[in-house]
Amino acid sequence: KKVLATKVLGTVKWFNVRNGYGFINRNDTKEDVFVHQTAIKKNNPRKYLRSVGDGETVEFDVVEGEKGAEAANVTGPDGVPVEGSR
């Protein structure tokens, strides 16, 4: 997949743990970017399912997906594990 941007910060708009996807709002362009649970690189080690929490700040790369921009290599800021869904 073509990389459109790297090390982008954003805020998780919503994430559905059961369906394994959601959207992140980019801090720079204010665009919403699709995020799938497989894109989460560093999950909260205390959680079994990969997820990001609503309102959580995350860092990610933006790649060209089949339906437009999507997140890849999702971590917390500066590469720490994500907090995950509460």
Rank of each mutant, 00 (worst) to 15 (best):
F23L: 07
G20M: 07
T38V: 05
K30D: 08
A39I: 01
N44V: 11
Y48R: 15
R50F: 09
K2Q: 07
N43R: 13
F23T: 05
A72C: 09
V12F: 09
R46E: 12
N73W: 01
S85N: 11
R86W: 11
D32I: 00
V58S: 01
T11M: 07
G20Y: 03
G76V: 15
G10V: 00
E70L: 06
N25V: 15
G22L: 00
D32P: 03
T11G: 02
K1F: 06
V8S: 03
V58D: 02
E70Y: 14
G20V: 06
K1I: 05
G65Q: 04
K42D: 13
T75N: 04
W14H: 06
R18K: 15
Y48I: 11
V52H: 07
V52T: 05
I40H: 03
H36A: 07
V17N: 10
V17L: 09
N44A: 11
H36S: 08
Y48S: 14
D78H: 09
N73S: 05
R50M: 12
T6Q: 10
A39N: 05
V35G: 02
D28P: 00
R26N: 02
V74C: 00
N19L: 15
V58Q: 03
N27M: 09
T6E: 12
G10Y: 00
N16F: 06
R50Y: 09
G53F: 14
K42L: 14
F23H: 04
V74T: 02
A39K: 04
R46M: 11
G10H: 00
P45I: 10
N16Q: 02
S85V: 14
R86L: 13
P45N: 13
G22Y: 02
I24A: 02
G53N: 11
K7D: 06
E83V: 14
H36T: 07
A71R: 00
V74M: 00
E56R: 08
G76Y: 15
V63S: 01
R46L: 12
Q37M: 11
N19F: 15
P45G: 14
V33I: 12
V12H: 00
D61F: 07
F60S: 06
Q37P: 01
H36P: 06
V8W: 02
I40K: 02
D28L: 00
G22K: 04
K41A: 12
V80F: 10
V82N: 09
K41Y: 08
R46A: 12
V52S: 05
G68N: 03
L9R: 15
T57Q: 11
V33S: 02
L49K: 15
T29S: 06
T6Y: 09
G22I: 01
A72S: 09
E83P: 11
N19W: 12
T11I: 10
E31V: 05
E59D: 06
K2Y: 00
G76L: 15
P45Q: 13
K67R: 14
L4S: 06
I40P: 02
V33W: 00
D54F: 14
K1S: 03
F60I: 03
V8D: 04
G84P: 11
K47I: 08
V33Y: 00
R26K: 02
A5W: 06
V12Y: 01
K41D: 09
W14T: 07
K41W: 09
W14G: 04
K2V: 04
F60R: 02
R86N: 13
F23G: 03
G20I: 07
K7R: 14
E70P: 00
N16L: 06
V3Y: 07
V52D: 06
V52P: 06
L49Y: 11
T57V: 14
E64T: 06
K67Q: 11
G10R: 00
P45F: 09
I24C: 00
G84A: 13
R86F: 08
Y48W: 14
S85K: 14
F15K: 02
K67N: 12
G55T: 04
D28Y: 00
V17P: 12
N73P: 04
G65F: 00
D28N: 04
P45K: 14
I40Q: 03
F15C: 00
T11K: 10
V82I: 12
D61S: 01
R18M: 08
E56Q: 10
T75A: 07
D54Q: 15
K7I: 05
I24G: 02
G76E: 15
R86M: 13
V17Y: 11
D78A: 12
F34T: 05
R18T: 09
V80A: 14
V3F: 07
T75C: 08
G10I: 00
G10T: 03
K7Y: 00
G84I: 10
V62Q: 01
N43Y: 14
N19E: 12
G65A: 05
G10M: 00
Y48G: 15
